[in-house]
Design a protein around this nucleic acid. Structure first.
Lengths: 181, 181
DNA sequence: TTAATCATGTAACACGTTACATGATTGC
DNA sequence: GCAATCATGTAACGTGTTACATGATTAA
């Protein structure tokens, strides 16, 4: 998965590990959190597979860096992944916790959903801001079609945040209402 | 995470590995997919930590089974986890793919979102059915308060499915509309 | 002088997936 | 006779997390 994310980015432009991490941080972070150690490991394994090639570049006043390019095999792998059936593995920590909240009091649980709602409200507002900088990102990519999909991921984030806020309201109302214990 | 899910179930009732897997399959499966191998491994590690205790039970006409009970330490660990700050790690495979769909044609991508919508429609309808059997589950637990949270997870699933269907509509409309390439 | 930026990683552990492996009983 | 149910796992690999480790340059 991360593997294909890296291939996708290198398909846009040559980058070193540091730049890949930066790109994750400012564009993909809301749906994928990449760890430094994992990115460097993945780059090695992609190079071993022949999907990318790396070249060391010397710099003045800065550490040397290793620039990576995607190969034809890598591009093929990327397209194969895109046309493959999407496999979604159910794994929602929030619901795992919710499922077992019956061990706590009504008050504690109302507090839980209040905090949760607050944290998604902050996120929601962040997404509204991100929407404006979408144009900025579009310029970066020099490609309206490509940047459209970036916009889709932001829209998903906004919808998801709104959905969770509404769900929190529902849970709080039910707790206030059916409050046994 | 799975660790705490198992502790949570054993807090409801003593179970063997097989029963834990069954419970995951019929109640938690929509938000957590537990692997057989992982559950057995986790049970061993929980026993090593002293959070659960296992006893072999001989059976006639059936294989022996190992019944697990939660210990006081285990119950403490469960409550600690519940009161701990929720950590959500962003990792949404659907969006990873969406982000890079710019390598494919408009037609292929419309098809992608159509299929996705269809699959969530099926899920959505499944959740509506699950809601009816909520009472069944409530009876099983003998506890209206506990079963309330099971209901919350179902409601989340329903809302999530609806949200994704609406998002698909938005993406399809945008593709039809701004269709370059 | 202190923190941020640029730039690379390793080591150890935790968690998740896939395939393999066994075997009795019960119902169709 | 065949599939499903009950019941246990192991082995190998893949992915993700946390902590450790280094070091030059630049701007406040």
């Amino acid at each position: 998965m991360l593997k294909h994310g890296i291939l996708g980015l290198l398909n846009y432009a040559d980058m070193n590990g540091y730049e890949i991490l930066e790109t994750f941080r400012h564009s993909l972070n809301h749906f994928w959190n990449a760890q430094k150690s994992q990115v460097y490991r993945e780059l090695n394994s992609l190079e071993d597979s022949g999907y990318i090639t790396g070249t060391w570049i010397e710099q003045e006043g800065k550490p040397d860096k290793k620039m990576y390019s995607i190969t034809d095999d890598g591009r093929k792998e990327l397209l194969d992944w895109l046309s493959e059936e999407l496999k979604e593995t159910a794994r929602i920590p929030l619901l795992m916790k919710t499922f077992f909240l019956g061990e706590r009091t009504v008050e504690e649980n109302i507090e839980f959903f209040n905090r949760l709602k607050e944290s998604y409200k902050v996120r929601y507002e962040g997404f509204v801001a991100a929407d404006t900088s979408s144009k900025e990102y579009g310029d970066e990519l020099q490609d309206g079609y490509r940047s459209m999909f970036w916009g889709f991921t932001i829209s998903y984030g906004r919808r998801r945040a709104r959905m969770i806020m509404e769900w929190c309201d529902e849970c709080i109302a039910a707790l206030r209402n059916g409050g046994s214990r």
